[in-house]
Design a protein around this nucleic acid. Sequence first.
DNA 1: ATTCATTAAATTGTCGACAATATTGGCCTG
DNA 2: CAGGCCAATATTGTCGACAATTTAATGAAT
Lengths: 229, 229
Amino acid sequence: MTTPVSIPERLFEQLKSAIFDGDIPVGSKLSEPELARDYQVSRGALREAIGRLEACRLVTRKTNVGARVVELSVENLLEIFQVRESLEGMAARLAAQFITADEIVRLESLLETHAHDIESSENQAYFQKEGDLDFHYSIVQASHNTTLFNLLCNDLYQLVRLYRYQFGMRSQRAKQAFSEHRHIVAAIKRGDGEMAEHIMRAHIRASRESVERIFIHESNDPLAAEVNA
Amino acid sequence: MTTPVSIPERLFEQLKSAIFDGDIPVGSKLSEPELARDYQVSRGALREAIGRLEACRLVTRKTNVGARVVELSVENLLEIFQVRESLEGMAARLAAQFITADEIVRLESLLETHAHDIESSENQAYFQKEGDLDFHYSIVQASHNTTLFNLLCNDLYQLVRLYRYQFGMRSQRAKQAFSEHRHIVAAIKRGDGEMAEHIMRAHIRASRESVERIFIHESNDPLAAEVNA
DNA sequence: ATTCATTAAATTGTCGACAATATTGGCCTG
DNA sequence: CAGGCCAATATTGTCGACAATTTAATGAAT
C-alpha cells in the first residue's frame, strides 16, 4: 500500500523541476490560466501547488496580483550559508551524539559512492549535483531532531538547489570538500560532537567564502562558484 | 492604501487564535464542513488557510483523511529550544554587527516597557505572554538576515506560542530573564557580537533546562514551566 | 508628445457542485 | 462473541463558473 499522491503534490514536484531547470525562469510570473492549460489541471489544484512553493520560499505571492519565482541575489545566498553554518554545525554535533549503527553504515557507503564518483569523473568540476546535498541531508537526518530536519530539508535545501542550478555552480575544490566530508563522518563515528561541529562549520564557511570571493570581488565568472557544502 | 487582505489570510489568523486559545484542541481534527459553517466561508478558502497552518507546522495533513492540530510533546519542545539556541545566538551576533541606531532606540524603549510591566504586576508569574517573544522578535529583526527572520518568526515562534498557551507556561525567573535581556541589548549596542551570542545562548539554554527539570524529572506541575526565552 | 481618466481585457479570488476516498455501522459467518 | 465483509454515510479531492481586482489599451486634454 503506497501513500496516495494528490494532484497538487505531483504538480508541486513538476513545478519545482521546471523552476530548477529554468523552464520557468527566475523572477517570472506564474500565470494560473497558462500553467493550468500546460499541465492539464484545474486552477484550484494549481493554486494549492503554488501555495506549497510559497511555503518553501521558491515563489512569492501578492494578493490580487499573482505569484512570481523568487529573485536570486548573492546577498540572499550568503544569508543562507550563514544559517546553514549554524544549523548544520548543530546537526553534526547532534549526529555524533545520536546516530545509530545502521545510519553510520549508510553514511559510509554514501562516502564510498562519492569516492567512486570522483575517481570515475574526468573533469574536476564533477559529481556533486545532488550527491553533496545527499551527504548533508544524511547528517541532518542522523541528528534525530525533526524540527531541524524540517527547517533544513524542507525549506533551505530547496533554495540551495535553485541557486546551484541557476548559477550553474561547480565545485572548485571537490577533493578538498570530499576529504572534509570524510573527517566529519569520522568525528561523528567516534562520538566527537565538538569536532564534528567544528569541521562542518569550517566546511560550510569555506564554501561561503569561496562564493564571496567569486561574486563580490570579481564576478565575471559566476559559473565557477562553490557548491561543495 | 492598505494592503488588501484575502479571506484565507483572515481565516489563517482566526484559526491560529482558535488553536492557541484551545478552542480547537491540540490533536483534534479540522473538519472542513464544520469549520466552513462556523466561519461562514467556502471550503476552498478554508483549505487554503489550512494549507498555511500546515506550512508553519501548526497542523499536519494526510491525503484523503484530513488535517489535525499538531500533537505537542516535551521532546519536540526541547528540539525547538535547541534550534532556537543556535539560530538566536547567531541573530544576536549579527544584530551586534548590523543593528541601526533607530533599532537600538526601539529596542531600549521595549526594555523600558517591560521594566514597567514587571514593576506594575503584583504576581511573579507575570508579563511576558507576547512581550518576551517581542524582544526576541526584535533581535532577529535587527540581525538583518531575512532568511533567519523567516525561519524564526514565520515558523518557529508560532509553535513556541502554541506551547506557551497550551502548557500554560509561566516564567519562574522573570526578573533574571529580564536582566539577561538587558545584558544582551548592552552587548549589541557596544557591538560585541561574541558576548551577545554567548548571553543569548545561555539565556535560551537556561529556559530549556528549566523545562527539562520540570517535565522530565517530576512533571506533576506543567503549569510552572519556563517561558522567558 | 505626455499625462491622466476611462474603459476593455485578462487575471486572481471565491464559491458551490460533483467525484473519489475514507469512515461508520450493520450484518453475516466462523 | 469476535472478526471480517459490505453497504451507507460523511469527508476530502477536484473541477468549472462567476465575482472582484488588477492590468492594458484607448482616447481626450493640456
